[in-house]
Amino acid sequence: MSGGEDAEAHRIACRLDVLLEERGITLTELSARVGVSVVNLSVLKNDRARAIRFSTLTAICEALDCQPGDVLTLAP
């Protein structure tokens, strides 16, 4: 499977941008809170991530006071 096909093989969407806006938090601030680089969070936020560690998802949820389903959704 090529990279293009792999990117289209899932419908998981990240709502990190919405959550950050709702909470008035920047990506840089979230990065400092969760210990993940701004670059890696940006990849996640822009739906370019191929995977996410449970520890990262847990840290994001704790920092934003949300559930995993608030961060990741299944697009139609």
Rank of each mutant, 00 (worst) to 15 (best):
I52L: 03
R15W: 06
A9I: 03
S55G: 07
Q67K: 15
L74G: 02
A51R: 06
L57Q: 05
A9M: 03
V43L: 04
L41G: 05
R11I: 07
N46K: 11
E8F: 14
S55F: 02
A63Q: 07
E22V: 09
G3Q: 15
D6R: 15
K45Q: 13
A7H: 14
R50Q: 07
R50E: 06
S37W: 00
A75R: 15
R33H: 02
G4C: 10
K45G: 12
L72K: 03
L72R: 03
V34M: 02
R11M: 06
T56V: 02
C14D: 04
G24M: 13
R11V: 12
I25H: 13
A7R: 14
P68S: 10
S31I: 04
D17K: 15
L72T: 03
L27K: 04
D17T: 15
T73F: 09
V38G: 00
I25K: 09
L19D: 09
A9C: 08
A32P: 01
C61Q: 09
R23D: 04
R23H: 02
S2K: 08
E21K: 10
N46S: 09
N40T: 01
E21R: 08
S37G: 09
E22F: 06
P68H: 11
A7C: 14
A7D: 14
E29P: 06
V34T: 12
L64C: 01
G24E: 13
Q67V: 13
V38I: 06
D6S: 14
M1F: 15
E5R: 09
S55W: 07
A7S: 10
D65W: 14
A75Y: 06
T26W: 02
P76S: 13
S55V: 06
L41H: 12
G3C: 12
R23E: 08
D70L: 12
G69I: 13
A49R: 01
L44W: 00
R50D: 09
L27C: 03
L41S: 10
L30W: 05
E8M: 07
I12P: 07
G4I: 14
T73Y: 10
G4F: 15
